[in-house]
Design a protein around this nucleic acid. Structure first.
Lengths: 184, 184
DNA sequence: ACTCCTCCATACGGTGACGTACGGTCTCGA
DNA sequence: TCGAGACCGTACGTCACCGTATGGAGGAGT
């Protein structure tokens, strides 16, 4: 909307392009078109394409932290987990990006960010389960199964073998994590 | 090995390139280098790059049929399912290709093949469960959960959040499908 | 030996994306 | 008002890949 752009505007557009077309779509000229400007603008804000990719990845990572930060306002760990799952299975935006990035994990930079974000999410959920009295190994096993299912369901939805059903998926995940489905 | 190549040699090399670098890696000149020949050879066997991609996809689809065909020699459906799961969780090659292709399902041709292959695998497993007395909807629900887990586990292995444990994964999948883990 | 056909190499033009060079416009403070 | 810096457009060189054109090596049949 604003006439002049910031580096963050570019990062946002790059993340959107990433969600839609994968890493290859995070290209200078196409994103410039999306923003309605030319390359001249881009090379003012960034040194090269790689920097843009990294900015998009940072933005994605920040969204994970933001989601976690919002959850901290809920006291009950069960409610936190449920809120997290509903948000996760609800949007579908993050699942798409996660999927893209995991499939392009050969890229060293992508690999590092993906690993960091995944580990952050997994250990956060694991800690919640531990807080609820589950032993650490058991908790991690369950979280891995649940997170794996999350990614797998996203894949099935993507190929049209399954229609999204956020609510029931969240219920299922709660059960697999050994938590009550309805928080009374 | 042979001095002269066939179209199938090109398709095989293309599928290998697909597994390693995704659709973008199925490019004429790089694959030619991999085969130790030049583009002149390629354009003798194929009309264009798209044909090569389609040939690689056909080859991948054929592998699914081949796996299924081999299973038909086993009489017991339980043994068939276990053999299928062990083969699936064992190699990891197919999971890599499946992952790549699912993430690039925006391509219309890829989408069609991926959907066909997935549906083939899912209905095949569903039929086996039905053969074992499970009702169709229940069977499909379980197969979807299992196939989704298969893809999700492949993702987790890919990002290093989980080390492969083919045997126990197969056991787990068998349990989720409502089948006995050990065929006595 | 001659010839046709198969398979491949080389050379070329075309396209899209990256990155650079440079100039233009707008804003803000002195 | 005026100069400096922020922001952007345009033109260009380069590179990787696609696809075409053309010709050459080598075997099979006559």
């Amino acid at each position: 909307m604003a006439e002049r752009l910031s580096a963050d505007d570019w990062a946002e557009a790059a993340l959107a392009a990433l969600a839609e077309g994968g890493l290859a779509a995070v290209a200078v000229e196409p994103v410039a078109v999306r923003l309605g400007v030319s390359k001249g603008s881009f090379y003012w804000h960034f040194a090269n394409r790689q920097s843009l990719v990294e900015a998009a990845l940072r933005r994605w990572e920040a969204e994970t932290e933001q989601v976690i930060a919002r959850l901290e306002f809920l006291d009950d760990p069960v409610a936190r987990m449920r809120s997290l799952l509903e948000r996760a299975f609800g949007g579908g935006q993050d699942a798409a990006i996660s999927f893209r990035l995991i499939s392009e994990v050969d890229d060293a930079v992508v690999a590092e960010v993906v690993r960091r974000v995944s580990e952050r999410r997994i250990t956060y959920m694991q800690d919640m389960l531990c807080e609820l009295g589950q032993p650490p190994e058991e908790a991690r096993r369950r979280v891995l199964a649940a997170y794996g299912s999350y990614l797998g369901m996203a894949a099935l939805v993507r190929i049209g073998a399954m229609d999204e059903a956020p609510r029931s998926l969240a219920d299922l995940a709660m059960a697999e994590l050994g938590l009550p489905a309805e928080p009374t």
